[in-house]
Structures are given as C-alpha cells and as structure tokens.
C-alpha cells in the first residue's frame, strides 16, 4: 500500500501527523513510539518572546470533545530553535513549525527565524485563546491576506495557513490566503466554546472561553474542507476529531491530502501510531490502493449511490 504523499516542502511517508499544541515538541511522546514513524510533526506554537499563557483551569471536558485555553504558552522562538528543534532533527521526520504572534511584525520575525530550521510553516491566525492577534487575523479576510503575504515573504519554506472555523464563509477566507501566496491550508482550528459549572455558576475554564476540539467538531471540519476543496487550488492538511483510520479516510475523501491528530493524543498517547498501523488495511477495505487515490474522492465519485464500496 502506498501511503506516501508529496506536498509543498514535505515528502510524507504517510499522511499522519500530530496536531500543533497536542504534542509539545515531541519529547514526551518519544517514550511511547519512534517519532520517525510519523508522516511529520507539527510543533507547538512559537511566538517572538516566551509566553506564560492563561490562568488555570485551562481544560474542560465536553460531550465527545474537550475545551482548552492554554494561551499559546511557549518558551519563545529562540529557545525553541536552540532547545527543542535539535531533538526533533535527530528523529528523521519532516517538521512543521506553528507560527503565532500579536502583530504582523511578530509573525514575520518568528517565521523568518524558525523557517531556517524546519520544512514548512503552519501560520496560526486562528488561536481563539489569546487577547491580541491570533484569531483576529483569522476572522478578517483582509488582515489574513496581509499577514499571509508578509509571512510568505519572510519564510524560507512553504506556508500552510491554519484557518479558523469561527467565521461565516470559510471559502472566502481560503481564497483570500490563496491570493496572498499561501502554499497550503491547515483546517480547522478549534471552535470557540464555553462550559459553566452549576456549582460555582462560573465558566469552568479560567479564560471563560476555550476552543472546542475532538470528535464533536469532526463533521464541521469535514464540511469546511469539502467546501474549500471545490473552490481553492491548495493542498489541505485536515484536522478535527480524528480518532481512527476510518476518520482519516473521511478526511481524505472530503479533500484533505494529509491529516493531523489532536486531542485524541490525550486519550491515548499511542493513537498516531495505532492509526498509521491500521491505515493500509482500512484503505484496502474501501477499495483504495494508495492514499493519493482517496484524496478528494467524495468529489469525483460517479458510482450509483446504491453500490457500496466495502
């Protein structure tokens, strides 16, 4: 079974990668399996200076999912380059750095610095949990276009823009960043959400709102990827609630070329490995002989609906 996928800047041996913020900088997961098995690793977000993040509690559970409001805690781009990336470099796995900031200048600075050490960037204009920057760039197409254009210029490697689902028209946003020179898309970030504890009458998360992730958001992501695939000519890394190789097939069919696994890593630290191992058989079950063949499959299916493939 051919699992390989070729994307701008990335030769993936398989389409599975851990999502940003759910995998730290990899060290903690290396005790469970070899990181070199992964298609790629997406690093935790980097900002210009170190950030402490939000007060705790930072996570809460929801039906088929969870909320988080970490607040982009990270040691800052310079420390990530010196202290975290060398370990990942030894693992023989493509690296995607997640770039965040409060201003366009900060995004540019981080992109310029970190792009010398990784294979691609994921431009984070969709974090719902920080007061400045983040999602404000991801909800206004003009701002998104501007920050994408400047980061693409500053970066030495291809730039995948991570889109926010907290908008009305995802296609408009995808087209805006395509026009600005993005090399790919990463879809989707979390949905802004809240839980309230009846005992305290207060939001469970100290930041009040948090980003909803997990199986609950998978249909939202599938719908958005399906819409964008039709209208935009950029490869898509799909994410949102993936927990099994069957979920991966659904993402590929919607139009994703690769996928990232996020909060499921918390349930089971071995989840990426287990999905990679199960993928060949699941592809075969649905009549595919490669990953490539499944990408966008829902858009070109011509067979009558009554004929099941598996």
């Amino acid at each position: 079974m051919n699992l390989s996928v070729s994307l701008p800047g990335l030769q993936l041996k398989n389409p599975i990668m851990p999502a940003s913020g759910c995998f730290g900088f990899g060290k903690e997961f290396a005790q469970f399996y070899s990181l070199s098995d992964l298609g790629a690793v997406i690093l935790k977000a980097a900002t210009g200076e170190k950030r402490f993040g939000n007060p705790t509690p930072r996570v809460a559970e929801a039906a088929s999912g969870m909320l988080n409001a970490i607040g982009l805690q990270n040691p800052g781009v310079d420390s990530i380059i010196t202290d975290e990336i060398p370990f990942l470099k030894e693992q023989d796995v493509p690296l995607i750095a997640n770039v965040a900031g409060s201003t366009v200048e900060e995004y540019e600075e981080v992109a310029e610095k970190i792009s010398a050490h990784v294979d691609a960037l994921e431009l984070n204009i969709s974090c719902p949990n920080v007061k400045e920057g983040g999602v404000q760039f991801g909800t206004d197409p003009e701002l998104a276009k501007e920050v994408t254009r400047r980061v693409v210029q500053a970066s030495r490697v291809p730039v995948y823009v991570k889109l926010s689902p907290n908008i009305t028209d995802i296609v408009q946003m995808a087209k805006a960043v395509e026009e600005a020179g993005a090399h790919g898309l990463s879809m989707i970030n979390t949905l802004t959400a809240m839980r309230i504890d009846p005992k305290t009458r207060k939001p469970v998360i100290a930041n009040q709102t948090g980003g909803l992730s997990g199986a609950a958001i998978k249909p939202v992501s599938i719908r958005m990827i399906h819409q964008v695939y039709k209208e935009v000519n950029l490869p898509i890394i799909g994410m949102g609630g993936i927990e099994s190789s069957e979920d991966v097939i659904e993402y590929l069919l919607a139009g994703a070329s690769a996928v990232a696994i996020g909060s499921a890593n918390f349930k089971n630290p071995l989840i990426c490995k287990e999905i990679m191992d199960a993928l060949p058989q699941t592809l075969q079950k649905y009549g595919f002989s490669s990953v490539q063949e499944a990408i966008g499959g829902a858009h070109h299916e011509q067979t009558a609906a009554s004929i099941l493939r598996a």
């Binding site: 997961f29 705790t56 918390f266």
Partner: peptide, 16 residues
C-alpha cells in the same frame, strides 16, 4: 489540577 495529556506535552496544568 485539571490535566490534559498527563505527560507534559499540552501545558494544561501549569503553575507559576
């Protein structure tokens, strides 16, 4: 504290 991954990767349970 409420935890996420429990192995140090997610930064849900930090303290100053």
């Amino acid at each position: 504290e409420r935890m996420g991954c429990g192995i140090g990767a997610c930064f849900a349970c930090v303290i100053e």
